[in-house]
Design a protein around this nucleic acid. Structure first.
Lengths: 202, 202
DNA sequence: GCACTTCCGCATCGATCGATACAAAATAGG
DNA sequence: CCTATTTTGTATCGATCGATGCGGAAGTGC
C-alpha cells in the first residue's frame, strides 16, 4: 500500500502526503537519489524525519513512490503516445512528450528516470537497477506497440520493431541528457522534427 | 601541472601515479563522482588517503585529471572521428566509437562524461557543470565539423549543421544511457547502422 | 471526561563522508 | 654520517549520512 492510510482514530496527519510526495519528486529529480539527502528532502517536504519515515517507510521506499508518481505525472506522455493511431504519431508524440517533460520551465531539467541513479555508490544499487528496469520497460512497451504496427501494416512489412523502439528510446534518453546539459526546448524540438522527417529508419 | 611531479630529492613515490589514475577512472566511471567514496577510490588505487591527497590534491581535482584521462583514452574516438573525410563518415565513426566505448567488456558500461554527475548533491555541483560543459563542448566540435562539411559541399547546401550535431550527440548520449541500462553492443550497432542509412536527416 | 491511537518535535544513534595532523620511513646532497 | 626533503602509515578530525527512541501533543470513539 502506498502512503499508509491515516486511520480513522488517532491524531490526524498534519500534512498533505500527496503534496509532500510531489515536493520529494522534485528534489530527487534535481539532485538524484543519493544526492538528495534526508535533510534536503524533509525540508522541501515541510515535514520532520519522523513524519517522513512514518508515512513513507524509508528513503528507498519514498523514491519508489516518487517514481510511481513521476510515471503517472510528468512521464505519462508515454502512455498517451502509445495510444496514438499510427506508429509515426506514436514516435512523434513520444519525442514531443519527452522534450516537453525534460524542458518544463517549472520542473528540474531532464528525466528523473534517467538521471536519478545512472551510476551510484553502494547505497543506491537497488534504485539504479529499479530505474534501469523502468527504462527498459518503457523501451519494451514501445517495441510491443511497433510490433503491433507491423502486424497491422501500419509499418512496412520487414520492419524491425525492436530496432525502431531502440531508436526512439535512445533519442528520448539522449534528449534527457541534452536537457540536463542546458539544451533548450526549441532546439530539441527542431531536431526531433528533423528525425521524424526520416521516419521510419530502416 | 598534473600529478605533481615527484621531485629529485626526498622519498620516492611508492606507486605509479598513472596506473592509480587509471584505477580511479574506472571507479568514477562505475559509481559516479559522488558515489565513488574516498575509501573506495583509494582501495582501488592501492594507496592511502594521504598519498592520494598529496599526489592529486583532493577528490574534485582527482576527478578533473580522470576526466582528462578519459577524454584522451576511451573518449578519444571523438577526435579520431572528426578527422574522417566526410560528414557521413564522421557521424558513423562517432556512433561506432561511442558504442564501443560504452559497451567495452573490460570497462564499466556507459560513458563517464554522461553518468558521473548528471544530478548531484551540494558537493557535486561544480563537477556536474564541468561535465555539462564537457558534453556541450563535444557537441560544439561536431557542429563545427559539420559546418565545415556544409561549406565544402560535403553536406547539401541549406543543411543545418547545428541540428545534425545535436542529432548525433543526442544519439551518443542516448547510447550511453542504453549501455548503462544493459543494452548490448550488437543491438546498439544495428540501430546506429539503421540511423546512418537515413543520414543526413534534414 | 476518559481511554486509546496516532502523529510530531527533539535528541541522538552508529556509520561514513571528505580531509588533515603528525611522526616514522626513505631517498639525495653535503 | 648528517641534514633536508618528500612520502607513507596511522589515527583522527568535524560534518553529514540515513535512521530511530522517546515522550508529549492532538486527535478519535466511548
Amino acid at each position: 500500500m502506498a502512503t499508509k492510510q491515516s486511520g480513522k482514530v488517532g491524531r490526524p496527519r498534519g500534512f498533505d502526503a500527496d503534496e509532500a510526495l510531489d515536493r520529494a519528486m522534485r528534489v530527487f529529480w534535481e539532485h538524484g537519489y543519493e544526492g538528495a539527502s534526508l535533510s534536503c528532502l524533509t525540508e522541501a517536504m515541510g515535514i520532520s524525519t519522523t513524519s517522513m519515515y512514518s508515512a513513507f517507510g524509508n528513503k528507498e521506499e519514498l523514491f519508489r513512490k516518487v517514481l510511481e508518481r513521476y510515471t503517472a505525472g510528468p512521464g505519462a506522455y508515454l502512455n498517451r503516445a502509445l495510444d496514438e493511431p499510427t506508429a509515426r504519431e506514436v514516435a512523434a508524440a513520444i519525442l514531443d512528450g519527452a522534450i516537453r517533460a525534460t524542458t518544463c520551465p517549472t520542473n528540474p531539467a531532464g528525466c528523473l528516470g534517467v538521471q536519478s541513479a545512472l551510476s551510484v555508490g553502494d547505497s543506491g544499487r537497488e534504485v539504479r537497477d529499479l530505474l534501469a528496469d523502468w527504462r527498459n520497460n518503457g523501451c519494451s512497451r514501445v517495441h510491443e506497440r511497433f510490433r503491433q504496427a507491423v502486424d497491422t501494416g501500419d509499418l512496412p512489412a520487414g520492419t524491425d520493431p525492436g530496432l525502431l523502439a531502440r531508436y526512439v528510446t535512445t533519442l528520448v534518453f539522449g534528449i534527457s541528457v541534452q536537457a540536463a546539459s542546458g539544451a533548450t526546448r526549441d532546439e530539441l524540438q527542431e531536431m526531433a522534427d528533423a528525425a521524424m522527417r526520416s521516419w521510419p529508419i530502416h
